[in-house]
């Protein structure tokens, strides 16, 4: 579980088959905006595995943390990401 406002990071991952974390948002620092509740984990469903329920978080990224220092400093990105895509920031 993550707290609203917590600074976290998306995992670097390349799973076989369907996933809902876009490649451009993997391995990036980000912040939890809110928890959208629990949903069936799309990756398991799409890949024919048994249903798993996971928390889904709305997560905020600064464009510079995604695209680098030359990105616009006033742009941010938001995505809804399952708990297993995220890890504590060390």
């Amino acid at each position: 579980m993550f707290e609203v406002g917590e600074y976290v990071r998306t995992r670097v991952m390349n799973p076989d088959g369907h996933t809902r974390i876009p490649a451009y948002l993997r391995g990036r620092p980000c912040r939890i905006l809110n928890c959208a509740g629990t949903f069936l984990f799309s990756d398991a469903r799409a890949n024919g595995k048994p249903d798993v329920v996971q928390s889904l978080y709305t997560v905020l990224f600064a464009a510079r943390d995604v695209w680098g220092a030359d990105a616009d400093g006033t742009t941010s990105l938001v995505a809804d990401l399952f708990e297993s895509y995220l890890e504590k920031r060390t």
Partner: peptide, 12 residues
């Protein structure tokens, strides 16, 4: 002005 892009990656 902040521009915020919402990528609809899941069930919302």
């Amino acid at each position: 002005k902040e521009v915020r892009v919402w990528d609809s990656t899941s069930e919302l």
